[in-house]
Amino acid sequence: MKLTMKIEITDSAKEWFENEVGLEKGSGIRFLGKVYGSTEVHEGFSVGMEVTQPAEVLAKTIIDGIIYFIDKNDEWFFSGYDLQVNYDKEREEPIYHFIEH
């Protein structure tokens, strides 16, 4: 079964990752489900992220040489949704939106 999940990174989120995380071309950001917190569609789980290189990719987008991706091991968390990553100016951190597809 081929999944058609998409990852969208807004311009303001891209700038945050580049400035705050110190990403350079060739870097990878993995989005994953983690215990604790909540999302628009999950109770008890939130979105985490880590700087790493992709292995088994479920979905990815590349912007300015930076790979934003979701690993196949996190399919349970993202299944049925596209992920939009934006930036919350008030909280000064990324904000994640799940868009049903």
Rank of each mutant, 00 (worst) to 15 (best):
K2W: 04
E92I: 12
F78T: 02
G37W: 06
Y87K: 13
M1S: 12
I95F: 11
F98H: 06
E75M: 13
G37N: 01
T61P: 04
G65D: 01
W16D: 06
V21T: 03
A55R: 05
F45W: 09
K60G: 03
F17K: 03
D82V: 09
S46V: 06
N86M: 14
E20D: 06
P54F: 09
I67V: 14
F17G: 04
P54Q: 04
E56W: 02
E18W: 03
D64Y: 03
G48W: 06
V41D: 03
E56M: 11
G33L: 05
V47K: 00
G26T: 04
F17C: 10
D71R: 01
S46T: 12
K6N: 14
E20V: 10
T61Y: 03
D64L: 11
I95N: 08
T4V: 07
H42P: 04
N86Y: 09
F17M: 08
L83V: 09
F69I: 07
Q84H: 11
F78S: 06
K25R: 07
L32T: 01
H101D: 11
D71Y: 00
F78Y: 02
K6Q: 14
H42N: 07
H42W: 15
H97K: 10
E24C: 07
W16I: 08
M5D: 02
G28A: 05
E50I: 13
D74Q: 05
S79A: 13
F69Y: 13
Y36A: 13
F31Q: 01
K6H: 07
K2L: 15
F98Q: 03
I99A: 08
P94W: 10
Y81K: 08
G65K: 00
Y96G: 05
E18I: 15
G22D: 03
D11Q: 15
T39R: 01
E20Q: 11
K89L: 14
Y81T: 09
E18M: 15
E40T: 10
Y96C: 10
P54M: 09
E24K: 11
I99W: 01
K72T: 12
D82M: 11
E90W: 08
P94A: 08
D74M: 05
R30I: 09
E15N: 06
E100L: 13
L23N: 04
I62C: 02
Y68P: 07
I66C: 11
M49Y: 14
